[in-house]
Amino acid sequence: ALPEGPGCRLRCVGPAGVPLVPGVPGCRGGAAGACVGHCESSAAPSPRAVLAASRHLQTSRGRCCTMAQASKVLVTLRCPGRARRRFRTVSARSCRCDLCRLGRY
């Protein structure tokens, strides 16, 4: 569930019992920072410069919740048979409404 209200916020994901990503069957735990929230965007008739250049009659402008600062981390998961496995990932340190990754949809 997302936090209510506008803004892009740092949230800890993967507390005990919630895996960071499916595909590591039976393993639990690990925690790292994510950025979640609602950023402003809009769409309107294109301004003249856009009409002249691209002929698109409508223009969209948007920002999306992104990791402003992040660090590489190793997280430890508890796996079946009391095994512990370590995984590389990235943990957000701060969040910001910024460039949407249009090409990553």
């Binding site: 994510a34 979640v36 929230g37 965007s41 919740c65 990932t89 957000a92 990754r101 990553r104």
Partner: peptide, 26 residues
């Protein structure tokens, strides 16, 4: 026209590129 604030996020994942993005715009 359209205006709003859409649900968006970036979350860590355990395989490269280690970040999963969900970006949508109004």
């Amino acid at each position: 026209a359209c205006w709003g604030r859409c649900e968006t996020w970036e979350k860590p994942v355990l395989e490269p590129p280690y970040i999963e993005s969900y970006h949508r715009v109004c």
